[in-house]
Amino acid sequence: VSSIKQTLVINGENLSCLVSSSPVAKIEPAHTVTGKEIPEAKVASFSSRGPSRDYADIIKPDIAAPGANILAAVGDSYVMYSGTSMAAPHVAGIVALLKALHQDWSPAAIKSAIITTAHVTDERDMLILAEGVLRKMADPFDYGGGNINPDGAADPGLVYDIDPRDYNRFFRCTIVRRTNVTCDATALPAYHLNLPSIAVPELRRPITVWRTVTDVGEADSVYHAEVQSPAGVRMEVEPPMLVFDATNRVHSFKVKLSPMWRLQGDYTFGSITWRKDQKTVRIPVAARMTIQDFYADVA
Rank of each mutant, 00 (worst) to 15 (best):
S3H: 00
K5M: 13
Q6Y: 00
V9G: 03
I10Q: 12
I10K: 08
S16I: 05
S20E: 15
S22Q: 07
V24W: 02
E28I: 13
E28G: 10
K36C: 14
I38Q: 10
A44P: 00
A44N: 04
F46I: 02
Y55W: 10
D62I: 08
A65I: 11
G67V: 01
L71W: 05
A73L: 12
T84G: 11
A87Y: 10
A87T: 10
L97A: 12
D104L: 10
W105A: 03
A109M: 13
A113Y: 00
I115P: 10
T116I: 05
E123A: 15
L134C: 05
A138H: 08
A138D: 13
A138E: 04
N147H: 14
D155S: 08
N168F: 01
N168W: 07
N180F: 11
T186G: 08
L195K: 08
E202P: 12
V209Q: 10
W210G: 14
W210V: 08
E218G: 12
E226T: 06
S229V: 00
P230L: 09
A231K: 13
A231E: 05
A231G: 09
V233E: 03
V243D: 05
D245W: 09
T247I: 01
V250Q: 14
S258N: 01
M260C: 11
R262W: 06
Q264D: 12
D266F: 11
K279E: 02
T280Q: 06
A287E: 02
M289W: 09
A296H: 14
A299V: 09
A299T: 13
A299W: 15
